[in-house]
Amino acid sequence: MSEDFYCEEVLSGKTPVNKVFETSDVLAFHHTRPFYPLHIVVIPKKHIASLIAIEDADSHILIELLDVIRQIASNVVSEYGACRVITNLGNYQDSKHLHWHIVFGSPKE
């Protein structure tokens, strides 16, 4: 896997995605290889390596990112009754680009 799948593949357009929501700074889409029955990924369009790499100058992006996550999570809870909102850090983070997973259901085997 590439170091930054989201910049190299998704944002470049090399890997097409099924968009859920988009703003000038944020993209939400259905995971390209979902691990859950419902699996949405939310990313900033600007490269930010992870949650702990956010700089003060990027705080407006973080606020917009969290607002998009809130809206999508609210819709998922309304439709399915629950969801998880997950981000990973360090060795748990496969792609070194800040991203959040909004998921529902049990992981697929």
Rank of each mutant, 00 (worst) to 15 (best):
F29E: 12
I43C: 02
L89N: 11
E22W: 03
V20M: 09
I40T: 01
E9K: 12
R84H: 15
A57H: 11
L51A: 10
H39F: 08
H47I: 12
D56A: 13
S50R: 04
F104V: 02
E8C: 15
V20N: 01
K14F: 01
S78K: 09
V85L: 14
I54Q: 10
F35Y: 03
A57Y: 13
R84D: 15
L98A: 08
H60K: 12
S59N: 10
P34W: 07
K96Q: 12
E55P: 01
S106H: 12
A57G: 11
I69P: 02
V10P: 02
K96T: 13
I69Y: 05
T15H: 00
V103M: 08
I69V: 15
W100Y: 14
E9S: 10
P44Q: 05
S2C: 05
A53C: 11
H60A: 15
K19W: 00
L66H: 04
D94C: 03
I52G: 07
I52L: 10
H99M: 04
F5R: 06
E3I: 11
L65V: 04
I86P: 02
T32Y: 03
D58I: 14
L51P: 00
V41D: 10
I86H: 10
D25W: 04
S12E: 08
D56I: 10
E79H: 07
S95G: 14
L66G: 03
Y92C: 09
I40G: 01
H99G: 08
S50F: 08
G90E: 12
H97C: 12
E64Q: 12
S2D: 08
S95T: 15
S50I: 08
A28Y: 05
S24N: 06
N88K: 04
R70N: 14
V20S: 06
A49I: 15
S78Q: 06
G81H: 12
A73D: 04
T23R: 02
S78A: 15
L65E: 09
V103C: 11
V17M: 11
H47M: 08
R70W: 07
R70K: 06
L27H: 06
V76D: 01
E22H: 06
